[in-house]
Amino acid sequence: MSDFIFNYIPVFDLFLLHLGFAFSQYIALRSGVFSLATAAFAGIGAYTAGILSVKLGLPSPVGIAAGVVLGTAAALFLSLPLSKLRGVYQAIATVAFVQIVVSLNIYLEGLTGGAMGLNGIPHTVGTPVLFVAAAGVAYMMWAINRTRLGRTFDVIREDEAVAVSLGVPMARYQTLGFALSGGIAGLFGGLEAHHTYALEPNQFGFTFLIAILSYVVLGGRSSVLGPIVGTAVLIALPEIARPLDENRVLVYGLLLILVINFLPRGIADTAIDRLRLRRVARSGSAPAKAGKAVET
């Protein structure tokens, strides 16, 4: 039994790390920002922590904290121009940002180790730290959903015209969501650096971006359970069946197509909706759909 647990600790660690990144992606989408910049913030956080530790010999908590600060700062800096853009334009701008960070990490060889990567980062982060960090962020996301912030994010994402008609200063809320996204990704980037000894610039590129996005799309973009379920499923799948591991990319691709077409709200959100509908139905008062709810 203990053998069993021991074998799965690396997978669990991976799950916790990626869950953090998934939350970063989640909170950006939740606030209605079509951002794919989580990979860039993660890269910034990871390299900040790594460089401060390897080059300056600073203790890892300092480096990780600096990663959070820089991740947040980068997001705040980006949010200004980003608030002028919408939809696919935001997506493209953030992809460009991801590419900028990747190519700078390759170019600034003296600092980052270039294409060879940054090696010899002290391994100071283990499962307990990752668990506390992921649980803390999950709690924060849950708290947001429970207060006015969550309600405001909902209306911004669903309908901007309604949001402003209710007096919501959209730009401010989206900046907030984006800054949280940057801070969380920065934190888990730093944790990843101290969890894996070495960093490699392409690690936080397009492939990373797609994986993180897949977690949130698969799990769901509304409830806190969404990123948790999505990350768990996609991390666990290859472990359950070896053939799935060999075809990991193929499975990701097929899942993305199927989920967005047939379960567009994701596993968790759809399940929650179903449960709620059932509860409402059981409580008696059937919806008064008198056959006239015709959309114009």
């Binding site: 696919v88 797609i210 193929l250 691709g253 097929l254 993305l256 567009p264």
Partner: peptide, 26 residues
Amino acid sequence: RLRKTGDEEFGAIISSIGAGLVIMTV
């Protein structure tokens, strides 16, 4: 299918990333 449900802006990006991954793996 996505165009019928009207969620193509976000959906199409996800869906076509998926298609790209499938084609690339093949």
